[in-house]
């Protein structure tokens, strides 16, 4: 899954280079959101709560 994170960022850079500014920002924000979710998953997976 981490592999997809870096792939999505590389796609953002590639789209920006090719001249599509708004599309590159959209892909960048998607990859950043993905990174935030991944970070939250990492944090919550280490919480031991006996429900």
């Amino acid at each position: 899954m981490m592999f997809l994170l870096f792939c999505s960022l590389s796609v953002a850079f590639a789209i920006a280079w090719l001249g599509y500014r708004r599309s590159s920002i959209a892909v960048f924000l998607f990859s950043l959101a993905f990174a935030v979710v991944w970070f939250l998953h990492h944090v919550t997976s280490h919480i031991n709560i006996d429900l």
Binding site: M2, L5, F13, A16, F28, S31, A35
Partner: peptide
Amino acid sequence: CPLCLLQRFGFLAMGFGSALNLLY
């Protein structure tokens, strides 16, 4: 580690804004 990789991603993401400034 996973957190280290997320920090590397963060640095690369920090460079994206500067890249847009230089391109557009």
